[in-house]
Simulated assay, not measured.
Amino acid sequence: MFDPGEVRDILISAARQRKTLTYSELLGILGHVFTRPLMRQLCKVLDHIDEDGRALGEPGLAVLVVRQSDGLPGQGWFVARTPIHDDLPLEWVGPEARRYTEARQAQAHDYWMAA
């Protein structure tokens, strides 16, 4: 349903503008209204984009997609990172999660600003 190349291009553009997008905003850009089933499909594409980027030595882009309520990625983003990152915060909300997320967002912003 979602073209990974199109989603990746949108996220690279956001990174270069030092922006984040809410799940709803990204779905809107892709021509959809927010629904939980569409969000779950989008999250699978985001995971795939990050896996491919990791293989190329790129920082993750999915971290740029956040919940409107608190500006953090969804729980699934943290869970997907668990097998390969041992520096994850213990909680998926709160100050520690925010610091971790903002550091990963800065990596994406810096990388794509320089690319």
Rank of each mutant, 00 (worst) to 15 (best):
D110T: 10
R99Q: 07
D70F: 02
L26K: 05
L26Q: 05
F34P: 04
A62W: 07
S13K: 13
L56Y: 01
L11R: 05
D47L: 13
D87N: 13
D9E: 15
S13M: 13
S69C: 00
A108H: 12
Y23P: 09
G57Y: 04
A103S: 10
I10Q: 09
R18H: 11
L61F: 04
E58M: 01
I49R: 09
H32C: 08
Q68V: 01
L64K: 05
L46H: 07
P37L: 14
V45I: 15
P73T: 04
I29C: 07
V66Y: 04
L42G: 12
T22S: 15
T101M: 00
E58V: 00
T22A: 02
H48V: 05
G71Y: 00
V66F: 01
E102N: 11
V45A: 08
H109N: 09
G28T: 09
P4L: 10
G94M: 06
P73I: 03
V45E: 05
K44A: 10
L90I: 05
D9K: 15
K44Y: 10
G60T: 04
Y111F: 15
L38T: 05
A115S: 12
Q17L: 13
L46E: 05
D9N: 15
M39Q: 15
L90P: 01
Q17S: 14
L38G: 02
F34M: 12
I49W: 10
Q68H: 05
D52H: 05
Y23K: 06
L90N: 11
D86S: 10
L72Y: 06
D52N: 07
T101Y: 00
T20M: 04
H85M: 10
